[in-house]
């Protein structure tokens, strides 16, 4: 358990709902859930994850801190926005799910083998380096996510697809060398740094 995690757990002892309200993006909306279950019924990933949004919200109110933050549930969200569109209380459920995922990641509580969490990290690394998504590199890093051997196997299996994409100019091979970037790269990095600082400071302050 990280120090920050321990500190926050101690600080909000017995009131995980307040911890979520204070630290999770849109977390203050969790208390407005009326437990109708429409989100759970609307989720296309419903059968595949441990807890539906309805249950996650209930678990937050029931002080199940570890169970919520270590859950793979919010990582399974595909951002289809069905739940937001249908929620009678108009809760930003998708955003709350991502907010919870981010918070769990910050506290280092993400399940180690969770593939979407890995992908999310790869995506972030890819995006944050130049401010643009480098699709070629993202694809390659995804192939080799689980080691070199498996990466080669996946690449071989998709050989034909790759060639066709090259032919139809759906894949730019020159992206492999450097790739394109935002105009003001240093400004972009400064912005990200500042945002991270604000976020860290807030949560740091909340933990004391």
């Amino acid at each position: 358990m990280s120090d920050l995690n321990q500190a926050l757990a101690d600080k909000y002892k017995g009131n995980f709902l307040k911890e979520v309200i204070d630290n999770v993006e849109e977390g203050d909306r969790v208390q407005m859930c009326m437990q109708c279950g429409v989100c759970a019924g609307s989720c296309p990933m419903g059968p595949h994850w441990e807890h539906t949004p309805q249950k996650i919200f209930m678990m937050i109110r029931a002080n199940k801190r570890e169970a919520v933050l270590a859950s793979d549930s919010m990582w399974m969200c595909t951002s289809c926005y069905n739940c937001i569109a249908r929620c009678p209380r108009e809760l930003p459920i998708t955003h709350i799910m991502h907010g919870l995922a981010t918070y769990a990641k910050r506290l280092n509580l993400v399940p180690k083998t969770q593939p979407t969490a890995k992908f999310a990290q790869l995506f972030w690394n890819n995006l944050s380096s130049k401010g643009r998504v480098n699709e070629l590199k993202l694809g390659i890093s995804l192939y080799f996510m689980n080691g070199f051997g498996e990466g080669v196997k996946t690449a071989m299996a998709n050989q034909k697809l790759g060639l066709n994409m090259l032919k139809t100019k759906r894949m730019a091979i020159n992206e492999a060398w450097g790739g394109h970037s935002v105009k003001d790269k240093s400004g972009f990095h400064a912005m990200l740094k500042k945002a991270a600082e604000i976020e860290n400071d807030t949560i740091e302050a909340n933990s004391k």
Binding site: M32, M34, M58, R61, R89
Partner: peptide, 14 residues
Amino acid sequence: FYRSGQNKGVTFRK
């Protein structure tokens, strides 16, 4: 009134 209760932070558990 129920919504206002939730807004004020009253916890409801079934």
